[in-house]
Design a protein around this nucleic acid. Structure first.
Lengths: 286, 286
DNA sequence: AGCTCTTATGAATCATTGA
DNA sequence: GTCAATGATTCATAAGAGC
């Protein structure tokens, strides 16, 4: 089956994914519907049933992901009755039992998070971006996400002390030496596992789950041009739009019809641009 | 038993705490020895036995903490065999079963962590600060940790200084004038649950678990002057030194004798300063 | 064009009200 | 009582308007 660069499919990813072959995608990145007790909101899976709801779907993710691929899960537990709910950390444990490796936990620091004042709580300004893999040898293009060197590095390099110039072994004996002087003259540095992004939301018809910069960062990091990206809860299509712009093919799955239409409309321009340049890729189907 | 403002006790907190009465402390804050496979490092509890090792101790913490008190646990799981270890999130679940409320997870973003490069991993620049409570009604002084407003506000306030005040006062009814009134005297804002602190490490004889700014923030937030702070794994005494400076009484417990001596020496100056001003507090013992 | 200033808007929480 | 909906609170951004 021939597909365009980006494709939005309507349905429950549990069923839709059964049409796709094993080891198809290089990256699965998604911000699933959060657990919520209220019926009318998007999703509507209560927190205590969230893991049970998620696992059959992640089993499909595990199947369609390439051995060198990565699964990035953007999620954050809610406060319920004054406590952080535990369904997210229970999900991590369950996913490991399902066969996933819990490789890393990135922090998305939301710079302009929602205001508010409460008697015993500050504003919640971060979310988890959990990285899971099938194997320990996964694709990672670290150079693709390098960032301008921060002020800390400049300051540090200005005042190169004795310990910094001469290579010394770390005090705890970990074996990792530090040679700060090597960094002199560079203007780009590798990032850390903390991402500072605003919750930018140009889209008025859908409360975007994540800002485009978030999937962009992970798509650059974990895929090459022409690779395949899957977002099984694609919402208004942010992931596919970004993937298309970065010349990755993508599949987005969304349960709600109104979002599907929205996403398909948004994709037209990006899709057209790529077709102009004559690049077409194919996603394998069963 | 009469105690000075800050006191360092040598021993395993599991046993030392048995000398203290129920509901004694307003804040327990600590950065416990990390799980580690290597013998020679501090602690040396293997990851898979960490929860089992921790729970009897946290049972004592639960007992000696006041109902309005807070327990802050600074911890981060290590990478082992390419994966984030799960002992920390398993600890969260176990602590809840022990009776703790998991109120919040603060992120300590380490702004100036050393650069490093690994084939499939970036620098780990954050740690968890887990907040646990005995009850939902705990003490929290939000005003004590307000932070300067962001650049946006600063720019605006600077611009206001340049302008002629009289001229704007004459423009009655304009939105601009109204906003001036709102911002006058408001250069502080409430923080979020992400703390941006450098890993300041002036102490060379001990690889400090946390920089003084970390306990300082939580001590200001969760205690008043004269309240009691406990650090059951006090290391070189950072928590007690900070507590003394902030005029809180404190107890630090440390297993290793060389750290105990170090901590006691560091405290002399801070202790002396407080005694000069004639303030003495008492910590209840059984 | 560059400034300066305005305003919309966020996967938020809590307390209260109503069914 | 329990559960669901509503209103109040509040700040960092970006984009837009005005000079």
């Amino acid at each position: 089956m021939r597909v365009t660069t980006a494709e939005i499919k309507q349905g429950d990813c549990l069923k839709v994914l059964q049409d796709f072959a094993d080891n198809t995608f290089d990256l699965i990145i998604t911000s699933p519907p959060y657990a919520d007790r209220r019926k009318h909101t998007y999703g509507g899976v209560p927190p205590e049933k969230y893991v049970e709801w998620f696992l059959p779907r992640s089993e499909q993710f595990l199947r369609v992901l390439k051995p060198t691929g990565t699964f990035v899960l953007n999620i954050k537990e809610k406060v319920e009755n004054g406590e952080r709910h535990t369904f997210v950390i229970e999900l991590i444990l369950s996913l490991r039992r399902q066969g996933w490796l819990w490789t890393e936990e990135f922090i998305w620091h939301k710079k302009n998070c929602y205001p508010g004042k409460w008697p015993n709580r500050f504003r919640d300004s971060w979310e988890r971006c959990l990285q899971f893999n099938k194997t320990r040898k996964f694709k990672m293009n670290q150079g693709a996400v390098m960032v301008p060197m921060g002020d800390w590095a400049k300051t540090r390099l200005k005042a190169l002390g004795k310990n910094d110039v001469v290579r010394f072994d770390s005090q705890v004996g970990s074996g990792f030496g530090k040679n700060i002087a090597n960094w002199k003259g560079r203007d780009l540095a590798y990032p850390t596992n903390v991402l500072h992004l605003a919750t930018e939301c140009g889209n008025k018809s859908h409360s975007a789950a994540f800002p485009p910069a978030l999937p962009e960062w992970f798509i650059k990091l974990f895929t090459d041009e022409g690779d395949s990206v899957l977002d099984p809860f694609v919402g208004s299509g942010t992931t596919c739009a970004v993937a298309a712009r970065l010349r990755r093919q993508s599949v987005g799955i969304e349960l709600h019809r109104q979002y599907v239409e929205l996403a398909q409309q948004d994709l037209k321009s990006a899709d057209w641009q790529l077709l102009e340049k004559g690049k077409r890729y194919e996603i394998r189907k069963r």
